[in-house]
């Protein structure tokens, strides 16, 4: 939106300049009152310089995730992006860089060359150190690898056997990284009633918290928030989507 708006303003500005120029020349010519048709073909106006913008969404990803590049150019005949090659004058492309990358776009036109850059940061997970460094926050990726969201059966807040196992993994990671505080979000699928689901989400988050506390993580490091069905991960109306929404989500509390 901002891009096209900026371009539009630029176009308006150029039109204004052109109008002003013609007005000035008009003044000069007025004295002589020359018939314009006797002047012959006008010299071609100088070609406008190309414009180019390049953006990435998101600008930071974990290794293996992808990012969408989005570019817009004007007045360009050849547009290239390093590492991708020649591309249309406007477009989007999904890329999965394996390390942090500067994407560089070159737009060549009759009016010159314009460049645009965007940097995509790739977070590469660092293997957790097991030396018991209590000040280590660990990386976001390592956190999510070890502390995984747990999912619940329909209208239930009891931990399933698989969640019991993942809670053990999570607890040992959290015990090895004592600087990490976490917040557990409780979620429900869209069926059922909003108020009851908020209480159910609270019970789900509390079940996940209790499992961690029982495995030795101090309760003071854990915050619990129920979102009920007010926030949804998935909005389809089918069981696989509902299952996605019946969860306790772990995130680092900053």
């Amino acid at each position: 939106m901002n891009l096209s708006h900026a371009n539009y303003r630029r176009a308006v500005a150029m039109l204004a300049v052109a109008a002003a120029l013609s007005a000035v020349t008009g003044c000069h010519k007025k004295d002589k009152a020359v018939d314009p048709s006797s002047l012959g073909p006008m010299p071609a106006p100088p070609a406008a310089a190309p414009t180019a913008t390049l953006s990435a969404d998101p600008v930071a990803i974990d290794l293996g995730q992808s990012v969408v590049l989005n570019w817009r150019t004007q007045n360009a005949t050849v547009v290239t992006i390093d590492g991708i090659g020649e591309v249309p004058s406007n477009g989007t492309q999904t890329v999965s860089p394996s390390s942090s990358t500067n994407f560089h776009l070159t737009a060549k036109g009759d009016g010159g060359t314009t460049e645009a850059n965007v940097r995509v940061t790739v977070r590469v997970p660092v293997a957790p150190t097991n030396n018991g460094d209590s000040g280590d926050m660990g990386s976001e990726a390592a956190f999510h690898q070890n502390v995984q969201d747990v999912f619940f059966d329909y209208d239930s807040y009891d931990l399933r056997p698989d969640a019991q196992t993942s809670s053990q993994t999570a607890a040992s990671y959290l015990n090895a990284h004592k600087a990490i505080k976490i917040v557990i979000g409780g979620y429900c699928d869209e069926r059922g009633s909003a108020e009851y689901n908020l209480a159910l989400g609270e019970n789900r988050a509390n079940s996940a918290k209790t499992a961690l506390v029982n495995a030795g993580v101090p309760a003071s490091r854990i915050r619990v928030i129920s979102y009920g069905k007010e926030k949804q991960f998935c909005t389809e109306q089918n069981e696989s989507c509902w299952q996605q929404n019946r969860r306790a989500q772990f995130s680092m509390d900053r």
């Binding site: 209208d155 009633s193 009851y196 908020l198 209480a199 159910l200 019970n203």
Partner: peptide, 26 residues
């Protein structure tokens, strides 16, 4: 279990109706 959505008896003010999931479904 979840206990939510209380409402007073508006005539007497001495009773509350509410929803409980203590036995499973609310």
């Amino acid at each position: 279990g979840p206990d939510v959505s209380p409402v007073f008896n508006p005539k007497t003010g001495s009773q509350i109706a509410w929803i409980s999931g203590r036995t499973g479904l609310p």
